[in-house]
Design a protein around this nucleic acid. Sequence first.
DNA 1: GTATATGCAAAGGGTTTGCACGGTT
DNA 2: AACCGTGCAAACCCTTTGCATATAC
Lengths: 147, 147
Amino acid sequence: MNKDWEQRLRTHGFRITPQRQLVLEAVEHLRHGTPEEILIEVQRTASGVNLSTVYRTLEVLEDVDLVTHAHIGHGAPTYHAVDEDIHIHLVCDTCGKVSSAPSAIADAFIAELRSEHKFVTDISHMAMHGECESCFGVPGEDLLRNT
Amino acid sequence: MNKDWEQRLRTHGFRITPQRQLVLEAVEHLRHGTPEEILIEVQRTASGVNLSTVYRTLEVLEDVDLVTHAHIGHGAPTYHAVDEDIHIHLVCDTCGKVSSAPSAIADAFIAELRSEHKFVTDISHMAMHGECESCFGVPGEDLLRNT
DNA sequence: GTATATGCAAAGGGTTTGCACGGTT
DNA sequence: AACCGTGCAAACCCTTTGCATATAC
């Protein structure tokens, strides 16, 4: 009885290792996390795992479409399991809060980029920046340097 | 006879310095450039200017709304003069090419984010990622690590 | 047994910061 | 004269890489 993720790795010529299992489980459990956050989660089970292994593993898991990542700002990207709902990240540049919107909301926009500009957009890859309800109009201090 | 940019700086309590003038001119001349590229442009006139000055100056110029920046990928952000046409960056994740689209194309999308999610979006701040016409469907090697 | 993965440490890009000096006001 | 802005060097965060060892196949 092989799990799907093992198949995916094997099919692409990758080996099954504890690290790969743990990183995948961490991403699924966290629902979204930076490499650093994923490392910490993994280390709850296996404290010897190294950050560079997390980076290399995320790259492999992304290769075989088990995870994706999105950039929500200056800092480290956020990784998601592919079975998560695809969503758009909305980052408030004033208070730093990150919310999400269903990606369907962008369908017409994406369709137009495709027909008018021949560009096939992955809307979930990059966050949308702006201001959330409570911050709009407020002088704002760009508290978090993530713009 | 004070130029507009001098006024803007003074009004906000900043001083007028050669570095600030040169950085602003470099941004206007390049139309878009990374801090590093801006430094090189500035150094054609004043070779002693330092990178950290460019960073600090861009921050000041952004404070007073003379420049903005957009993130087109992993690397350094791209700075624009505010009198440039506002545009959306489209980055091909396969070949790395960056094209632009008029920001009006996103108006309906932005309106919906505003009405449905109470989020006021700055569409020009983050690039849209995906694949350009010539790369779509091609296996792709993610040649440029800027996703 | 052999190729791939891992850990570790070092290096790399991009950016920020502390400090003393110099320039703007 | 007072304060802000600059250059310089060091430090910072995030990520990648070289190499020897360990492990999956």
